[in-house]
Amino acid sequence: MRLERSLPLLGLLLCLAGSMAQEDSNEEFLVEISGTTVTITCPLDEESTSWELSGTKAAVTGGKYTIENHDSSPVNVTCASGAQKYAMYLNARVCTNCEELDALAVTGIITADLLITLGVLILVYYFSKDRKGRTSSSAGSRQRGQKMQRPPPVPNPDYEPIRKGQREVYAGLQARGF
């Protein structure tokens, strides 16, 4: 019984500890992509930062490293300053003719698409509504006002109605008085 009461408290403590641990490791690389140029900013804000790409030391020192004409191949990036060292696996897809869309443009495109679709639905509804009242005079259609003909005979003889001459087959099924 006591364990059931302490489980929510334990869960809450684990959530708080996890969020505190994430706040401590808030140091992140900043990656900017423009066409085929990739600019990486190290979490260390020092000018004496040295860079290393896939095991090869880069000639650039400083807080930012720029890769010109990147070919979209994965790269291991490391920046270090003194005893502090940060590593990152960069797998950036770049292209020469890419255009970046902001959130407003994407929202506008989606809204316009929904409005055009709604307009087409309304047009289809009104044009199909107009055709419901028309009747065709083809041979397959049934005319109004005529009485229905008899349905076709039932193919299974077990379901045929009892005829006057065949009552002896069903004689054993008389109603019994209780």
Rank of each mutant, 00 (worst) to 15 (best):
M1F: 07
R2N: 12
R5Q: 12
L7G: 01
P8Q: 02
L12Q: 10
L13K: 04
L16Q: 00
A17E: 00
G18Q: 00
G18F: 01
M20F: 14
M20C: 10
Q22Y: 02
E28L: 04
F29T: 08
L30W: 12
L30I: 03
E32R: 01
I33H: 01
G35L: 00
T36D: 05
T37I: 05
T37G: 04
T37D: 06
T39C: 03
C42G: 07
C42F: 12
L44P: 00
L44E: 09
E46F: 14
E47F: 06
E47W: 04
S48E: 07
W51I: 01
E52Y: 02
L53T: 01
G55W: 10
A58F: 04
V60I: 12
V60P: 01
V60K: 04
T61W: 02
T61K: 09
T61S: 14
G63D: 04
K64T: 11
K64M: 11
T66L: 08
T66Y: 03
N69D: 14
D71M: 08
D71I: 03
S73Q: 12
V75W: 06
V75P: 00
V75Y: 12
N76P: 00
N76G: 11
V77H: 05
C79N: 13
A80D: 06
G82A: 12
Q84W: 08
K85E: 15
A87Y: 06
N91R: 10
A92T: 01
R93Y: 14
C95K: 05
T96C: 07
N97D: 13
C98S: 13
C98E: 15
C98G: 11
C98R: 04
E99L: 08
L101C: 12
A103Q: 05
A103W: 13
A103S: 13
V106Q: 03
V106C: 01
G108I: 01
I109H: 11
I109P: 02
I109L: 10
A112I: 13
D113W: 15
I116H: 15
G119W: 05
G119Q: 06
G119D: 07
V120Q: 13
L121M: 13
L121D: 04
Y125F: 11
Y126E: 00
F127A: 05
K132N: 10
R134C: 10
R134K: 03
R134S: 13
S136T: 06
S136V: 02
S137R: 07
A139W: 15
G140R: 02
G140C: 08
S141W: 12
S141Q: 11
R144C: 09
K147N: 14
R150Y: 09
P152Y: 03
P153N: 09
V154M: 09
V154F: 10
V154Y: 06
V154E: 09
D158N: 08
Y159L: 02
Y159N: 08
E160M: 08
P161A: 05
R163P: 05
K164W: 07
Q166P: 00
R167Q: 13
R167G: 09
V169L: 09
G172H: 15
R176K: 10
R176C: 10
G177L: 04
